[in-house]
Write a protein that binds this DNA or RNA. Structure first.
Lengths: 211, 211
DNA sequence: TGAATTTTTGACCGATTGGACAAATCCTAA
DNA sequence: TTAGGATTTGTCCAATCGGTCAAAAATTCA
C-alpha cells in the first residue's frame, strides 16, 4: 500500500524519517534549480533513495514541493509574528532586522525557495499569501501605526515599511551571487552579514526617527 | 547558410528585424518561466515563427538567453551609471530612486529576468558581474564616499547603501505577486509605485541626513 | 514462526524537449 | 531574368522527465 495518508492512519517511524530526509533533499535541490528546473531524480539522488521509492512517500513532484513550502512557512514568518506591540519600538525593529539578517545568513535556501516561488507569480502559495500572510501583515501594520500615533517612530506607510525591511534583509540571501561579485574576494566573508545588519539598522533607525 | 555570424558578414535587414522580434518574445517567456522553465517552442510561438526558423537565427536556447541578457545590461545599469558626482547628492539619490521605481513599474520583465539569473547563482553572467558591474559599483561607491567626506550625507558603508537602494526598488517588480496579495485589491493599483517612491525617498532622505 | 503489511527496486512508458537536416521557398543583385 | 544565397518549414531523433507497475525484500505483529 502507498504511504500517502489520504485517510489518516498513524504515520510509521520509517515514514516520518524518510519524509524528513526527502524534504531536506528537496529543499537543497528546489532552492538551487527552482520547481521546474529540479528533477525527481536529483531529489531522489540527494535523499539517497530510488525514484520509485521517493514517489512512494510523495505521490508527485508537486506534492513534495507543496509539503516543503507548507512546512517552512511558519519558520519563515516567525520573526514578523514575534514583533510585539507592547515592546519598545526601536528594540523591536532592531530585533526584527537582526533576525531577518540571521535567517538570510543561516537559511539562504529557504529564502531562495520562497523568492523563486514569488518571482514566478506564487502559483503554489497564492492562497497562503492572502489567507495567512496578509492578515499577519495587516496586524503588524496596525502595531506600527500605533507606534506612529504614540510618536515613537516617524509616520510613514506601514506596509511599505514592512516591504522595505523584507527587501533589504532578504536581498543578502536571494542576491548573494551579485553581492559576492560586487564586494569581491576581500569582503565576501561572513562579515558582510554583520556589516549589512549594522547598515540596515542605522538606515531605519535614522530613517524612522520621529521628528 | 546559417544566419549566425561566426565571421562578421554584415547583418541583413531581415536578420535585424527577426532577431529583434525573437529577443522581445524571449524576454516575455524567459521572464515568466525562467531559463529552464521556458521552451524554444514557446518563444517561437510568441515570435510567430517556426522552431527551426528561430534556431536559424540563434543556434541554441542558451544563445538566445545570452544575447538577451547582454542586450539588456546597459539599459539595466543606466540609472546607476548616470549618478553624477558633480550633482547635488540629495537630488541625485532622489533621481536614482525615482528612476529605479519607474523601471520596476515599466520594465518588470527585465527586472525578473535578472533577478532569476542572480537567484540561480548568475551562471550566465558571472563574468559580467565582476568585469562590468563591480567596476561601476566601485566607481559610484567612491562618489558616495566623496559626498560623505563633504558632509553632504551621513557616513555609512557605500556598498551596503547601494545594495539597499537596489533591494527596496527592485522588490516592487520581483516580488509583485506578494505585494499585490498583501496590499489587497484596494491598493494594488498603479498608485502603489508612487507610494513606494515616496516612502523610499523619505526613508533614505532621513536615514542619510548628515548629523 | 509465519502471515500480513510495509518498503524498496528494476524495468518500463508516454510526453516533452532541444536540436538536426534536407528540401522547399523567397530575395536580391547582376 | 536568373543564379546563388538567404530564409523557412516539415519531419525526425535522442535524451530527459514524471510517473506506473509488478515483483522482491524487509518489517511488523499476532
Amino acid at each position: 500500500m502507498t504511504a500517502e495518508n489520504a485517510e489518516n492512519k498513524p504515520e510509521t517511524r520509517i515514514q516520518r524519517e524518510k519524509r524528513e530526509i526527502i524534504l531536506e533533499a528537496a529543499l537543497e535541490i528546489f532552492s538551487i534549480h527552482g520547481f521546474r528546473g529540479a528533477t525527481i531524480d536529483q531529489i531522489a539522488e540527494a535523499a539517497s533513495m530510488s525514484k520509485p521509492n521517493l514517489l512512494y512517500y510523495y505521490r508527485s513532484k508537486e506534492d513534495i514541493y507543496a509539503a516543503l513550502l507548507h512546512r517552512l512557512l511558519d519558520t519563515w514568518l516567525a520573526p514578523l509574528a514575534e514583533m510585539d506591540a507592547a515592546g519598545d519600538p526601536v528594540q523591536e525593529l532592531r530585533r526584527y532586522i537582526r533576525r531577518k539578517i540571521e535567517m538570510a545568513r543561516d537559511f539562504p535556501r529557504e529564502s531562495r525557495l520562497f523568492a523563486n516561488e514569488i518571482l514566478r507569480g506564487a502559483p503554489h502559495i497564492a492562497n497562503i499569501l492572502t489567507k495567512e500572510l496578509k492578515p499577519l501583515v495587516d496586524e503588524k501594520a496596525d502595531v506600527l501605526r500605533q507606534w506612529m500615533r504614540q510618536g515613537k517612530i516617524a509616520s510613514v506607510d506601514p506596509y511599505h515599511l514592512i516591504f522595505a525591511l523584507w527587501a533589504t534583509t532578504q536581498h543578502y540571501a536571494d542576491f548573494d551571487a551579485q553581492i559576492q561579485a560586487v564586494l569581491g574576494p576581500g569582503r565576501s566573508g561572513e562579515g558582510r552579514f554583520e556589516d549589512a545588519a549594522r547598515f540596515i539598522e542605522q538606515l531605519f533607525w535614522n530613517g524612522l526617527r520621529p521628528k
